[in-house]
Design a protein around this nucleic acid. Structure first.
Lengths: 140, 140
DNA sequence: CAGGTTTACTTGATTGAATCAAGGATCATT
DNA sequence: AATGATCCTTGATTCAATCAAGTAAACCTG
Protein backbone atom coordinates (compact mmCIF):
# COMPACT_ATOMS: atom_id res chain seq x y z
CA UNK A 1 0.00 0.00 0.00
CA UNK A 2 1.39 3.36 -0.99
CA UNK A 3 1.73 5.77 1.87
CA UNK A 4 -0.87 8.55 1.94
CA UNK A 5 -0.24 11.89 0.27
CA UNK A 6 -0.49 14.16 3.24
CA UNK A 7 -1.49 15.55 5.52
CA UNK A 8 1.02 18.20 6.19
CA UNK A 9 -0.72 20.69 8.37
CA UNK A 10 -4.32 20.94 7.39
CA UNK A 11 -5.29 24.46 8.15
CA UNK A 12 -8.94 24.14 7.23
CA UNK A 13 -11.76 21.64 7.39
CA UNK A 14 -12.05 21.68 3.64
CA UNK A 15 -8.39 20.81 3.17
CA UNK A 16 -8.72 17.96 5.61
CA UNK A 17 -11.77 16.67 3.75
CA UNK A 18 -9.86 16.82 0.48
CA UNK A 19 -7.03 14.87 2.01
CA UNK A 20 -9.37 12.23 3.39
CA UNK A 21 -11.01 11.87 0.03
CA UNK A 22 -7.71 11.41 -1.78
CA UNK A 23 -6.48 8.95 0.81
CA UNK A 24 -9.58 6.77 0.70
CA UNK A 25 -9.76 6.98 -3.07
CA UNK A 26 -6.17 5.88 -3.55
CA UNK A 27 -6.49 3.05 -1.10
CA UNK A 28 -9.68 1.83 -2.71
CA UNK A 29 -8.05 1.91 -6.12
CA UNK A 30 -5.13 -0.10 -4.86
CA UNK A 31 -7.37 -2.58 -3.08
CA UNK A 32 -9.51 -3.12 -6.18
CA UNK A 33 -6.40 -3.76 -8.25
CA UNK A 34 -5.07 -6.15 -5.62
CA UNK A 35 -8.30 -8.16 -5.77
CA UNK A 36 -7.39 -8.96 -9.35
CA UNK A 37 -3.70 -9.43 -8.56
CA UNK A 38 -2.83 -6.27 -10.43
CA UNK A 39 -0.64 -3.43 -9.31
CA UNK A 40 -2.23 0.03 -9.45
CA UNK A 41 -0.02 0.88 -12.42
CA UNK A 42 -1.10 -2.24 -14.28
CA UNK A 43 -4.77 -1.51 -13.60
CA UNK A 44 -4.24 2.04 -14.76
CA UNK A 45 -2.68 1.07 -18.08
CA UNK A 46 -5.20 -1.69 -18.68
CA UNK A 47 -7.98 0.83 -18.09
CA UNK A 48 -6.69 3.09 -20.81
CA UNK A 49 -6.82 0.55 -23.57
CA UNK A 50 -10.46 0.78 -24.55
CA UNK A 51 -8.95 1.45 -27.94
CA UNK A 52 -5.65 0.10 -29.17
CA UNK A 53 -2.89 2.64 -29.01
CA UNK A 54 0.84 3.14 -29.12
CA UNK A 55 3.25 3.02 -26.24
CA UNK A 56 4.16 6.65 -26.67
CA UNK A 57 0.55 7.77 -26.44
CA UNK A 58 0.22 5.92 -23.15
CA UNK A 59 3.42 7.42 -21.79
CA UNK A 60 2.36 10.92 -22.70
CA UNK A 61 -1.12 10.57 -21.28
CA UNK A 62 0.20 9.10 -18.06
CA UNK A 63 3.04 11.56 -17.79
CA UNK A 64 5.84 9.07 -17.40
CA UNK A 65 8.86 7.80 -19.26
CA UNK A 66 8.31 5.53 -22.25
CA UNK A 67 10.52 2.88 -20.70
CA UNK A 68 8.17 2.70 -17.75
CA UNK A 69 5.33 1.85 -20.11
CA UNK A 70 7.48 -0.75 -21.87
CA UNK A 71 7.96 -2.45 -18.53
CA UNK A 72 4.35 -2.35 -17.40
CA UNK A 73 2.98 -3.44 -20.75
CA UNK A 74 5.50 -6.28 -20.83
CA UNK A 75 4.10 -7.57 -17.54
CA UNK A 76 0.53 -7.21 -18.75
CA UNK A 77 1.56 -9.13 -21.86
CA UNK A 78 3.07 -11.89 -19.75
CA UNK A 79 -0.22 -12.06 -17.88
CA UNK A 80 -2.02 -12.48 -21.18
CA UNK A 81 -4.05 -9.31 -20.71
CA UNK A 82 -2.59 -7.33 -23.54
CA UNK A 83 -1.03 -7.79 -26.95
CA UNK A 84 1.67 -5.67 -28.48
CA UNK A 85 1.61 -5.74 -32.25
CA UNK A 86 3.62 -3.84 -34.81
CA UNK A 87 1.85 -0.84 -36.27
CA UNK A 88 1.42 -1.50 -39.99
CA UNK A 89 1.66 2.24 -40.70
CA UNK A 90 4.88 2.78 -38.77
CA UNK A 91 7.10 -0.12 -38.10
CA UNK A 92 8.88 1.63 -35.26
CA UNK A 93 5.66 1.74 -33.30
CA UNK A 94 3.79 -0.92 -31.36
CA UNK A 95 0.06 -0.98 -30.92
CA UNK A 96 -1.10 -2.20 -27.55
CA UNK A 97 -4.54 -3.72 -27.18
CA UNK A 98 -6.39 -5.68 -24.52
CA UNK A 99 -6.99 -9.35 -25.10
CA UNK A 100 -10.45 -10.77 -24.36
CA UNK A 101 -9.09 -11.81 -20.98
CA UNK A 102 -7.76 -8.28 -20.54
CA UNK A 103 -11.23 -6.97 -21.27
CA UNK A 104 -12.68 -9.28 -18.69
CA UNK A 105 -10.15 -8.37 -16.01
CA UNK A 106 -10.60 -4.70 -16.76
CA UNK A 107 -14.33 -5.06 -16.43
CA UNK A 108 -13.96 -6.89 -13.15
CA UNK A 109 -11.65 -4.17 -11.95
CA UNK A 110 -14.20 -1.51 -12.85
CA UNK A 111 -16.74 -3.48 -10.86
CA UNK A 112 -14.41 -3.91 -7.91
CA UNK A 113 -13.47 -0.25 -7.77
CA UNK A 114 -16.71 0.93 -6.28
CA UNK A 115 -15.38 3.87 -4.32
CA UNK A 116 -16.14 6.77 -6.63
CA UNK A 117 -19.48 5.28 -7.64
CA UNK A 118 -20.48 4.62 -4.05
CA UNK A 119 -19.32 8.00 -2.79
CA UNK A 120 -21.20 9.89 -5.48
CA UNK A 121 -24.18 7.64 -4.91
CA UNK A 122 -24.50 8.92 -1.37
CA UNK A 123 -25.40 12.30 -2.81
CA UNK A 124 -28.65 13.41 -4.38
CA UNK A 125 -28.51 14.47 -8.03
CA UNK A 126 -28.53 18.11 -6.95
CA UNK A 127 -25.72 17.51 -4.53
CA UNK A 128 -23.76 15.72 -7.20
CA UNK A 129 -24.04 18.77 -9.42
CA UNK A 130 -22.99 21.03 -6.57
CA UNK A 131 -20.00 18.85 -5.81
CA UNK A 132 -18.95 18.79 -9.45
CA UNK A 133 -19.23 22.57 -9.67
CA UNK A 134 -17.28 23.11 -6.46
CA UNK A 135 -14.52 20.72 -7.46
CA UNK A 136 -14.23 22.26 -10.90
CA UNK A 137 -14.01 25.70 -9.38
CA UNK A 138 -11.45 24.54 -6.83
CA UNK A 139 -9.38 22.93 -9.58
CA UNK A 140 -9.22 26.34 -11.25
CA UNK B 1 5.71 10.04 -11.13
CA UNK B 2 3.21 7.46 -9.98
CA UNK B 3 0.60 6.62 -12.56
CA UNK B 4 -2.85 8.05 -11.92
CA UNK B 5 -5.48 6.11 -10.02
CA UNK B 6 -8.13 5.78 -12.65
CA UNK B 7 -10.12 6.53 -14.57
CA UNK B 8 -11.85 3.34 -15.34
CA UNK B 9 -15.09 4.34 -16.94
CA UNK B 10 -16.38 7.48 -15.37
CA UNK B 11 -20.09 7.20 -15.60
CA UNK B 12 -20.87 10.60 -14.13
CA UNK B 13 -19.54 14.11 -14.12
CA UNK B 14 -19.07 13.95 -10.38
CA UNK B 15 -16.97 10.81 -10.59
CA UNK B 16 -14.81 12.40 -13.26
CA UNK B 17 -14.35 15.48 -11.08
CA UNK B 18 -13.33 13.29 -8.15
CA UNK B 19 -10.80 11.54 -10.30
CA UNK B 20 -9.37 14.79 -11.59
CA UNK B 21 -9.05 16.07 -8.08
CA UNK B 22 -7.23 12.99 -6.87
CA UNK B 23 -4.94 13.00 -9.87
CA UNK B 24 -3.96 16.65 -9.53
CA UNK B 25 -3.60 16.33 -5.76
CA UNK B 26 -1.29 13.34 -5.98
CA UNK B 27 0.84 14.91 -8.65
CA UNK B 28 1.13 18.14 -6.70
CA UNK B 29 2.16 16.21 -3.60
CA UNK B 30 4.81 14.36 -5.52
CA UNK B 31 6.07 17.52 -7.18
CA UNK B 32 6.34 19.34 -3.86
CA UNK B 33 8.31 16.45 -2.40
CA UNK B 34 10.55 16.36 -5.46
CA UNK B 35 11.36 20.05 -5.00
CA UNK B 36 12.98 19.08 -1.73
CA UNK B 37 14.54 15.92 -3.15
CA UNK B 38 12.19 13.77 -1.11
CA UNK B 39 10.12 10.85 -2.23
CA UNK B 40 6.41 11.08 -1.46
CA UNK B 41 6.81 8.41 1.18
CA UNK B 42 9.64 10.31 2.85
CA UNK B 43 7.63 13.53 2.84
CA UNK B 44 4.69 11.65 4.29
CA UNK B 45 6.65 10.17 7.17
CA UNK B 46 8.46 13.42 7.86
CA UNK B 47 5.12 15.19 8.02
CA UNK B 48 3.88 12.87 10.74
CA UNK B 49 6.65 13.60 13.18
CA UNK B 50 5.36 16.80 14.76
CA UNK B 51 5.82 14.77 17.90
CA UNK B 52 8.36 12.05 18.41
CA UNK B 53 6.92 8.60 18.09
CA UNK B 54 7.70 4.96 17.69
CA UNK B 55 8.19 3.08 14.43
CA UNK B 56 5.18 0.89 15.13
CA UNK B 57 2.89 3.87 15.60
CA UNK B 58 3.96 5.19 12.23
CA UNK B 59 3.42 1.85 10.55
CA UNK B 60 -0.03 1.50 12.02
CA UNK B 61 -1.10 5.02 11.12
CA UNK B 62 0.19 4.67 7.59
CA UNK B 63 -1.19 1.20 7.14
CA UNK B 64 2.00 -0.48 6.06
CA UNK B 65 4.47 -3.06 7.25
CA UNK B 66 6.88 -2.06 10.00
CA UNK B 67 9.83 -3.01 7.83
CA UNK B 68 8.74 -0.45 5.29
CA UNK B 69 8.96 2.22 7.96
CA UNK B 70 12.37 0.96 9.03
CA UNK B 71 13.56 1.48 5.49
CA UNK B 72 12.08 4.94 4.98
CA UNK B 73 13.18 6.21 8.37
CA UNK B 74 16.68 4.89 7.73
CA UNK B 75 16.88 7.01 4.60
CA UNK B 76 15.55 10.06 6.40
CA UNK B 77 18.16 9.45 9.06
CA UNK B 78 20.90 9.27 6.45
CA UNK B 79 19.64 12.59 5.11
CA UNK B 80 19.95 14.06 8.60
CA UNK B 81 16.25 14.85 8.80
CA UNK B 82 15.36 12.47 11.58
CA UNK B 83 16.87 10.80 14.62
CA UNK B 84 16.06 7.37 15.93
CA UNK B 85 16.74 7.04 19.62
CA UNK B 86 16.09 4.19 22.02
CA UNK B 87 12.95 4.60 24.06
CA UNK B 88 14.00 4.80 27.73
CA UNK B 89 10.74 3.15 28.77
CA UNK B 90 11.01 0.22 26.39
CA UNK B 91 14.35 -0.71 25.02
CA UNK B 92 12.85 -2.68 22.14
CA UNK B 93 11.32 0.50 20.80
CA UNK B 94 12.85 3.40 18.92
CA UNK B 95 11.57 6.93 19.08
CA UNK B 96 11.76 8.82 15.83
CA UNK B 97 11.96 12.60 15.86
CA UNK B 98 12.72 15.30 13.34
CA UNK B 99 16.01 17.11 13.59
CA UNK B 100 16.05 20.91 13.25
CA UNK B 101 16.93 20.40 9.62
CA UNK B 102 14.03 17.96 9.37
CA UNK B 103 11.77 20.65 10.79
CA UNK B 104 13.00 23.09 8.22
CA UNK B 105 12.58 20.72 5.30
CA UNK B 106 9.15 19.74 6.51
CA UNK B 107 8.16 23.37 6.74
CA UNK B 108 9.46 24.03 3.26
CA UNK B 109 7.52 21.05 2.03
CA UNK B 110 4.34 22.37 3.60
CA UNK B 111 5.00 25.65 1.83
CA UNK B 112 5.72 23.98 -1.48
CA UNK B 113 2.60 21.82 -1.35
CA UNK B 114 0.18 24.56 -2.19
CA UNK B 115 -2.41 22.52 -3.99
CA UNK B 116 -5.00 21.95 -1.28
CA UNK B 117 -4.59 25.45 0.05
CA UNK B 118 -4.87 27.01 -3.38
CA UNK B 119 -7.81 24.87 -4.43
CA UNK B 120 -9.78 25.64 -1.29
CA UNK B 121 -8.78 29.28 -1.62
CA UNK B 122 -10.64 29.50 -4.90
CA UNK B 123 -13.86 28.97 -3.00
CA UNK B 124 -15.74 31.42 -0.83
CA UNK B 125 -16.09 30.53 2.86
CA UNK B 126 -19.64 29.37 2.20
CA UNK B 127 -18.53 27.23 -0.68
CA UNK B 128 -15.78 25.74 1.44
CA UNK B 129 -18.35 24.68 3.98
CA UNK B 130 -20.53 23.21 1.27
CA UNK B 131 -17.62 21.30 -0.18
CA UNK B 132 -16.66 19.96 3.22
CA UNK B 133 -20.19 18.83 3.89
CA UNK B 134 -20.56 17.18 0.50
CA UNK B 135 -17.27 15.36 0.78
CA UNK B 136 -18.05 14.18 4.28
CA UNK B 137 -21.40 12.90 3.13
CA UNK B 138 -19.87 11.23 0.09
CA UNK B 139 -17.25 9.58 2.29
CA UNK B 140 -20.09 8.05 4.31
C1' DC C 1 18.42 9.48 -53.10
C1' DA C 2 22.17 9.81 -49.68
C1' DG C 3 23.00 11.82 -45.17
C1' DG C 4 21.72 13.42 -41.02
C1' DT C 5 18.06 14.10 -37.77
C1' DT C 6 14.12 12.96 -35.32
C1' DT C 7 10.87 9.59 -33.51
C1' DA C 8 9.33 5.16 -31.20
C1' DC C 9 10.53 1.96 -28.54
C1' DT C 10 13.78 -1.23 -25.89
C1' DT C 11 17.53 -2.43 -22.79
C1' DG C 12 20.29 -2.08 -18.80
C1' DA C 13 21.38 -0.02 -14.57
C1' DT C 14 19.95 2.18 -10.44
C1' DT C 15 16.95 3.80 -6.71
C1' DG C 16 13.29 3.28 -3.82
C1' DA C 17 8.61 1.46 -2.04
C1' DA C 18 6.32 -2.39 -0.45
C1' DT C 19 5.64 -7.02 1.31
C1' DC C 20 6.94 -11.31 3.42
C1' DA C 21 9.55 -14.50 6.25
C1' DA C 22 12.64 -14.98 9.82
C1' DG C 23 15.27 -13.55 13.66
C1' DG C 24 17.13 -10.94 17.95
C1' DA C 25 16.15 -8.38 21.83
C1' DT C 26 13.21 -6.91 25.27
C1' DC C 27 9.07 -6.90 27.84
C1' DA C 28 5.13 -9.05 30.27
C1' DT C 29 2.90 -12.98 32.44
C1' DT C 30 2.60 -16.78 34.94
C1' DA D 1 12.64 -18.59 35.61
C1' DA D 2 10.27 -19.99 31.48
C1' DT D 3 6.92 -18.81 27.89
C1' DG D 4 4.99 -16.02 24.84
C1' DA D 5 4.05 -11.62 22.89
C1' DT D 6 5.83 -7.21 21.12
C1' DC D 7 9.13 -3.96 18.64
C1' DC D 8 12.00 -3.62 15.38
C1' DT D 9 15.57 -5.14 11.94
C1' DT D 10 17.45 -7.92 8.16
C1' DG D 11 17.34 -10.25 3.88
C1' DA D 12 15.03 -11.53 -0.20
C1' DT D 13 11.88 -10.43 -3.77
C1' DT D 14 8.83 -7.80 -6.82
C1' DC D 15 7.58 -3.86 -9.08
C1' DA D 16 7.53 1.24 -10.31
C1' DA D 17 10.14 4.88 -11.94
C1' DT D 18 13.91 7.36 -14.04
C1' DC D 19 18.01 7.90 -16.76
C1' DA D 20 21.38 6.90 -20.27
C1' DA D 21 22.27 4.50 -24.33
C1' DG D 22 21.11 2.00 -28.19
C1' DT D 23 18.39 0.14 -32.44
C1' DA D 24 15.45 0.67 -36.09
C1' DA D 25 12.47 3.01 -38.88
C1' DA D 26 10.61 7.32 -40.58
C1' DC D 27 11.38 11.95 -42.08
C1' DC D 28 13.92 15.79 -44.11
C1' DT D 29 16.91 18.35 -46.80
C1' DG D 30 19.94 19.42 -49.97
Amino acid sequence: MALPSGPVTTSSEAEAALFDLVDVYDRAYEAAAAELSLSPAQACVLGRLDERRGMGALAEELGCDASNITQIVARLETLGLVTREPDPRDRRARLVARTPRGDEINHRFATAFTFARTAVGRLSPDEQDQLTALLRKALG
